[in-house]
């Protein structure tokens, strides 16, 4: 059975990617399961979707713990432990990253000898979710070596049937771009077996203690613990304040920020809490002196690294 996981951010079309691949497998004669992660997804938040495909009826259910292929649509997710991008990768797994960084660099960064493949973002625009999902689906299809071009195109058509013709055409092109780009690695992803019933690791069940109600009620006994959630990781674009253009009104950006992550410093300049800023860009849209600009998160991180270097 093939076990394939797609990782991306809410809004990047990973559910669509999994469905295109699922349909392509199905049209190629496979038994298939595909599903997005079930939960409260938010735009920009790390999400995943998965596909299982095999020649026999699929009996496994739920999340894939040991993937044969992991496709990562947004390379900034790799550094986020909570995204679980690398979870369960085994010696024969393939990791496919949509990224501009070479595969060798990733192998070094991840300290792995496993197979890492890369694919440049579609049309140079990492913010076009529709094409990103088709690209990922097409690339995954080629890596399995089990899906022909025609099946992939039909799968795109079926999944996007409700969309205008030009959207479908663009996605066909996106899917084929992924399919063709991975021609060199066609069939690199293999099928893996099920967990064997002899010699398995027994679950470490315990007899749960009866905890007092102070512990055992779904109650939080402190204020504002949510600040431990770094929603800044949802961000794909980063607002940056040009202090020279800022007139220190002290209220517009800070008041309109839904998340309340813009404060004012001692000199009455606004300060953005990037750990929590979700990148909605209301501040940019509302600043009366246009003192706020948007840069990509990638550019932002490069600037951060450069600044740290200067400090050191």
């Amino acid at each position: 059975m093939y076990r394939i996981r797609f990782h991306g951010r809410g809004g990047q079309g990973m559910k669509t990617a999994s469905r295109i691949l699922g349909s392509a497998f199905f049209l190629s004669g496979f038994e298939v399961q595909d599903a997005p992660r079930y939960g409260a997804e938010r735009r920009g938040a790390p999400i995943f979707a998965f596909v299982r495909a095999g020649r026999a009826a699929i009996l496994e259910r739920g999340n894939i713990d040991r993937p044969d292929l992991v496709v990562v649509a947004d390379d900034t997710l790799v550094a986020i432990p909570g995204a679980g991008v690398l979870a369960g990768l085994h010696a024969d797994s393939v990791l496919l990253l949509v990224t501009t960084v070479p595969a060798d660099d990733w192998q070094q960064r991840l300290n792995t000898t496993g197979t890492v493949l890369t694919l440049p973002p579609p049309g140079g625009s990492e913010r076009d979710p529709a094409l990103l999902s088709a690209l990922c689906a097409g690339a995954a299809a080629r890596l399995t070596g089990a899906i022909e071009r025609e099946a992939l195109i039909r799968a795109v058509d079926e999944e996007l049937a409700l969309y205008p013709a030009d959207t479908i055409a663009a996605n066909r092109a996106g899917a084929l771009a992924g399919f063709d780009a991975l021609a060199v690695a066609a069939g690199r992803v293999g099928e893996s077996g099920a967990v064997a019933a002899d010699g398995y690791d027994a679950p470490d069940w315990i007899d749960l203690p009866a905890d007092g109600v102070g512990l055992a009620a779904p109650t939080i006994h402190a204020g504002a613990t949510s600040v431990e959630v770094r929603t800044g990781l949802w961000r794909t674009m980063r607002p940056v304040i040009d202090l020279e253009k800022c007139h220190r009104c002290t209220w517009v950006c800070g008041t309109f920020c839904p998340d309340g992550v813009i404060g004012v410093d001692a000199e009455r300049y606004p300060v953005i809490d990037y750990d929590h800023c979700k990148g909605c860009m209301i501040c940019l849209a509302q600043c009366p002196t246009h003192a706020i600009a948007a840069i990509t998160e990638r550019q932002g991180r490069e600037a951060d690294i450069a600044a740290e270097g200067e400090q050191a």
Binding site: G212, V213, G214, A217, P218, T219, I220, H221, A222, G223
Partner: peptide, 16 residues
Amino acid sequence: PGPGEIRAGKPTSQAV
């Protein structure tokens, strides 16, 4: 009232 009472100065978020 136990550990979870609702009153000022004692922040609790209950039934989350």
